Amino acid sequence: MATHATVTPPSEKAHSAHDALDLESGPGIDFLDSKAGASLRRQISVQLTAEQFERLYLQPGGQKAKGDLAQRFGNPTPLGIASLLLCHTPFSCYLMGWIGTTTAAAPTLVGAMYFMGGLGLTVSGILEFILGNTFASVVFFTFGSFWLSFGFLFQPEQGIATALGATSVEYNGGIALYLVWWACLTLIYLIASLRTNVVFVALFTTLDIVFWLLATIFIKLAYANTTHLTELLKAAGAVGFLTSACGWYLLVVLILDSTGWPIKLPVGDLSGFLVRKRRVE
């Protein structure tokens, strides 16, 4: 992209500011900005490249920016994954009944849902957007919104379960439909992840199964059907824990890489999968 800039010829730069003042101060005369036609001061239009324009006007001292954004900023992906894990992993443990917990322990995670799942994922999504990582940005933004919405749902002060009735069709059926569409969205992410790495594919596969299991549980609750409910809850928790295991592995890979460890843990690169064929002209 070329940028136009006005450059005054060197011969005209030699004139003093006093000369300009005299011309402008004449009675009824405006030589520098003549109303009858073009200005008497000659202007030359010069085309500058985007890089030259940035060095002249946007970079103090004309210094060229060092590297690109990915080199000047840190990698926000570990923050997003850590924020997701610190909400998802405890919730999976509740579903499996660890330390005698049940889904009734969900309100204890409200703070984490807001500040880790919601805030942490949103911040990382913004940073991924700045770096131009569309897929990671969308995933982090949407799951940040998911944890914010669940935090709002489980916050005792909202009284949503009390207002609708925790065993009502409206409450359980509404959550079930919400989870069904999250399962559909996760399926889209799963398809997209086939071009990333094996660990991401496993993460989205297990997460999609979790959403379908949770949707099934709430559908059964909506119809007051409690058969095999405990087994379904534990199955959702176990599969969710597999999702967490994939996430924790990715987090370790990213953190070790950020500190320059010589050991490169494998993730199963799939960037060459379904590569678009270039048309030969």
Rank of each mutant, 00 (worst) to 15 (best):
131 L>E: 05
128 E>H: 11
138 V>H: 06
74 G>E: 05
245 A>N: 05
80 G>Y: 04
223 Y>K: 13
187 L>I: 07
229 L>Y: 04
97 G>I: 03
122 T>Y: 05
72 R>P: 04
146 F>Q: 09
93 C>I: 11
161 A>D: 05
151 G>W: 04
84 L>A: 12
45 S>M: 15
32 L>S: 02
103 T>F: 08
278 R>M: 13
113 M>K: 03
34 S>D: 11
18 H>P: 01
114 Y>T: 00
168 S>K: 01
215 A>S: 14
166 A>W: 03
23 L>M: 12
182 W>G: 04
22 D>I: 14
188 I>S: 05
102 T>V: 06
74 G>N: 04
255 I>K: 05
42 R>D: 11
58 L>F: 10
192 A>P: 05
111 G>F: 14
50 A>S: 09
271 S>I: 09
240 G>C: 00
183 A>N: 03
217 I>H: 03
118 G>L: 07
29 I>Q: 13
1 M>G: 07
172 N>T: 01
169 V>G: 04
15 H>P: 03
200 F>N: 09
53 F>H: 13
34 S>I: 01
219 I>M: 10
259 T>N: 12
202 A>V: 01
108 T>I: 14
114 Y>S: 01
2 A>Y: 08
228 H>C: 10
202 A>S: 15
225 N>T: 03
271 S>R: 14
238 A>F: 06
65 A>F: 11
31 F>D: 08
123 V>Q: 05
226 T>G: 13
60 P>H: 09
187 L>E: 09
57 Y>V: 06
189 Y>Q: 10
158 Q>A: 09
196 T>V: 11
162 T>K: 15
79 L>V: 12
74 G>T: 00
109 L>Y: 00
129 F>E: 15
98 W>Y: 08
147 W>G: 04
32 L>F: 08
152 F>W: 12
102 T>P: 02
81 I>N: 04
138 V>M: 03
265 L>E: 01
189 Y>L: 14
39 S>P: 00
242 L>K: 02
193 S>H: 13
96 M>Q: 06
87 C>L: 00
144 G>M: 04
254 L>E: 14
134 T>P: 00
224 A>M: 11
241 F>A: 12
236 A>H: 05
246 C>R: 00
150 F>C: 09
12 E>Y: 08
46 V>P: 00
265 L>I: 02
